[in-house]
Amino acid sequence: MSQKILTMKLLKEKYGVCRLDKTDEIPNWAKKSDFFSITKTLDELSIVCSQNSIPKNIKCEKDWRMLKIEGTLDFSLIGILATISTVLAQKEISIFALSTYDTDYILIKDNNIDNAIEALINENYKIIN
């Protein structure tokens, strides 16, 4: 499916996706992780970080693993996430995607990570552990 071989790195930690109230301040525990992403909208404050950083009383979905697309992606590139999500959707694997200025991150539930990696390798993606 993909024309150019993309390399993805499987990050070691497990992550949680948290939902806080839109009026909440950004908590310090969220910033203790090596990787964290914070998004505030009109409806919510959403935080992705190491699940070990998340207090027990926080509404969250845990046990996500993360694949990072290696290298810097040019803004003119089209269909990177669409192609990856299609490959995984065909295997009935849901994702949670994050994009940064440089690259994209794909979160996949831990119980599906092996199947996701196999599906991506079969489509000529290179996966680094």
Rank of each mutant, 00 (worst) to 15 (best):
N122A: 15
K31P: 05
L81E: 00
L120Y: 03
K68G: 01
K31V: 09
K109H: 15
E70V: 14
K12N: 15
W64Q: 06
L81H: 01
N122F: 12
I54K: 09
G16Q: 02
I54Q: 08
S50Q: 02
K59Y: 11
A116I: 00
L77I: 10
S76E: 13
A89H: 12
I38F: 05
I84P: 05
F35Y: 13
A30E: 02
Y125W: 10
L10M: 11
T41I: 01
D104V: 01
M66T: 07
K40H: 13
D114P: 02
L67Y: 12
L107A: 02
I84N: 09
I95E: 04
I47Q: 03
M66S: 09
K22A: 15
N52H: 13
F35D: 04
I26G: 10
V17N: 00
L20F: 07
T83V: 13
I47C: 07
I69S: 10
R65V: 03
I26Q: 09
G71F: 05
E118L: 05
Y105G: 04
F75C: 08
S76P: 07
A97S: 15
I69W: 06
M66Y: 06
W64V: 05
T39Y: 04
D114Q: 11
I69A: 13
Y15D: 04
K31Q: 15
S94T: 14
D24W: 03
L88D: 00
S50M: 01
I95L: 08
S50K: 00
Y125F: 15
S85L: 01
L98Y: 08
A119F: 05
Y125R: 11
K68W: 00
E61R: 04
I54D: 10
K62N: 12
I47H: 04
A89E: 09
F75M: 10
I95Y: 10
E70H: 08
F75E: 07
L98M: 14
V87W: 02
S85P: 00
T86D: 14
A82S: 15
L45M: 06
E70Q: 12
C49D: 07
R19H: 13
K59R: 10
Y15M: 03
K68M: 02
K91N: 09
I127A: 12
E25R: 02
S37A: 15
A30F: 01
N112M: 05
K109R: 15
K14M: 01
M8H: 01
Y15K: 05
D43G: 10
I93H: 10
C49F: 06
C60A: 12
T39K: 09
A30C: 08
P55L: 03
D74I: 08
K32W: 02
S37P: 06
S33H: 05
N112T: 06
K14G: 00
F36H: 15
K56D: 14
E25K: 04
N115E: 14
V48L: 01
A30Y: 01
N52P: 07
S50P: 00
E118C: 04
K62T: 12
I69N: 08
Q90G: 06
I47A: 06
N122W: 08
R65H: 13
K12S: 13
N112E: 09
K62L: 08
N122L: 15
D104C: 00
I80N: 03
D21I: 02
D102F: 11
I47K: 02
D21S: 15
K56E: 13
D102K: 10
D110R: 07
N57Y: 11
L20G: 09
W64L: 04
E92L: 09
I127P: 05
S50E: 05
